[in-house]
């Protein structure tokens, strides 16, 4: 582990690369700004990122490189082939990159499936459930539903013998149609199912947070999901992680979102950020654009931070200490995510967010109750 501006930093566990900020659909809960900008990351930015990481001394034996933040399949396949070649060549002998991406699924065809197989890319698809749940929020720019086209993409993956992870955003509509949601996922049988309670972030004011009694209703939903997972054998990401933490990890666990340079985010324009990937693209009067530096700057170093980012790191560290001191769930959480603290409280110091209550505390209680029940 290195030290930067008085903070322990790294190792880099995940690199989030924004191939493009453009998205071909217009989900009602999206937090990303500028989803109409069609710029694709120049290959010299990819090269500069690879060189900066290779010379940082902060890489372990493996690192996840995740194409995200925008719809990655709107960028050309040839871009990814060349970017992967640059990254593999530059990082050879230092670390093994593991490529993954998160897609809305609409553009998956046989050519993309061949690419995923050839490049060993782990694919995640964003699916919220049956049409009356998924299409309530995941809309085209012409205000039409997207499920039927997304499922055609999933069918192409299956026809090619490729598995996929699924992430669902859980909204009030999901909670109204829990049985239909779980039946849909039981038929789909993804490699793993991730549950993201709809968040207040960026331009989105969560409809979940504005619905009545959302905390107890979300907890009841999670208990149903845990029973469903045991019955169907479909792994639920949040429950699996929490079980591992409870049964076998050294406590307190570490939240990579509040550890400097554990996650490194690179934007299409070469700006580099860390902590929660969502921070990239947001601005604040006190911190500027949450960017630690620009890869196009000849003197760029991962461990030389702009003043605004150093201030951000100080405040995130204070926020983590606040969590450690005052929250009973810190041992299984590692401290609230900076993006949620900023979106809900306009501060990185301070503690509990509504995301904490749903995304961590409720999960912890369901898993602890389940394992205590298994003891009896």
């Amino acid at each position: 582990m290195s030290e930067v501006s008085g903070h322990p930093a790294g190792p880099v566990r995940q690199i989030v690369l924004q191939a493009t900020g453009f998205c071909n659909i217009d989900c009602r809960y999206c937090y990303l700004p500028d989803r109409l900008t069609r710029t694709v990351m120049p290959l010299d930015v990819v090269s500069a990122a690879a060189r900066a990481l290779a010379s940082s001394g902060m890489l372990d034996d493996e690192v996840e490189i995740r194409w995200h933040a925008g719809e990655p399949l709107t960028a050309p396949r040839d871009f990814y082939a060349r970017a992967h070649e640059i990254l593999r060549r530059t990082l050879a002998g230092i670390t093994v990159p593991r490529f993954s991406l998160q897609t809305n699924g609409l553009l998956i065809d046989d050519a993309w499936c061949s690419f995923f197989r050839r490049e060993d890319v782990r694919v995640g698809v964003s699916l919220d459930g049956p049409a009356h749940v998924h299409d309530a929020y995941r809309r085209t720019r012409n205000d039409r539903g997207t499920l039927s086209r997304a499922m055609r993409g999933v069918e192409r993956l299956r026809a090619a013998g490729l598995d996929c992870d699924v992430i669902s955003v859980i909204t009030p509509v999901t909670l109204l149609h829990q049985e239909a949601y779980l039946d849909f996922m039981a038929r789909l049988r993804p490699r793993s199912l991730g549950l993201n309670p709809e968040e207040t972030e960026g331009g989105n004011s969560s409809t979940l947070h504005r619905s009545s009694g959302f905390e107890p209703r979300y907890r009841a939903f999670l208990r149903s999901v845990a029973a469903w997972s045991a019955r169907t054998g479909v792994a639920v990401r949040e429950l699996e992680r929490m079980r591992e933490h409870v049964l076998s990890h050294r406590l307190p666990v570490r939240n990579t979102q509040n550890e400097p340079l554990s996650i490194v985010t690179v934007g299409t324009d070469g700006g580099v950020s860390s902590f929660s990937p969502e921070l990239f693209g947001w601005r604040s009067p006190d911190h500027g654009d949450f960017v630690l530096g620009d890869l196009r700057d000849p003197g760029f170093r991962l461990d030389a931070w702009r003043p605004g980012f150093a201030r951000l790191a100080d405040e995130v560290a204070q926020g983590r200490r606040d969590c450690a001191r005052s929250c009973g769930y810190f041992a299984l959480c590692g401290g609230g995510a900076p993006a949620n603290k900023w979106a809900e409280h306009q501060a990185f110091t301070g503690t509990r967010t509504r995301f904490c209550a749903l995304g961590v505390m409720a999960v912890a209680d369901v898993v602890l109750d389940e394992l205590e029940g298994a003891r009896r």
């Binding site: 566990r13 990579t256 009973g328 109750d369 205590e372």
Partner: peptide, 29 residues
């Protein structure tokens, strides 16, 4: 925030974990 258990008691999360375990760093995001 406190954790309420099986027993209806308020117990610390650490206590609940220890009790489960008695019957590797964890990274998460």
């Amino acid at each position: 925030p406190v954790s309420v258990s099986d027993t209806g008691r308020v117990r610390s999360v650490e206590d609940r974990v220890q009790r489960i375990r008695t019957t590797h760093p964890g990274y998460t995001a």
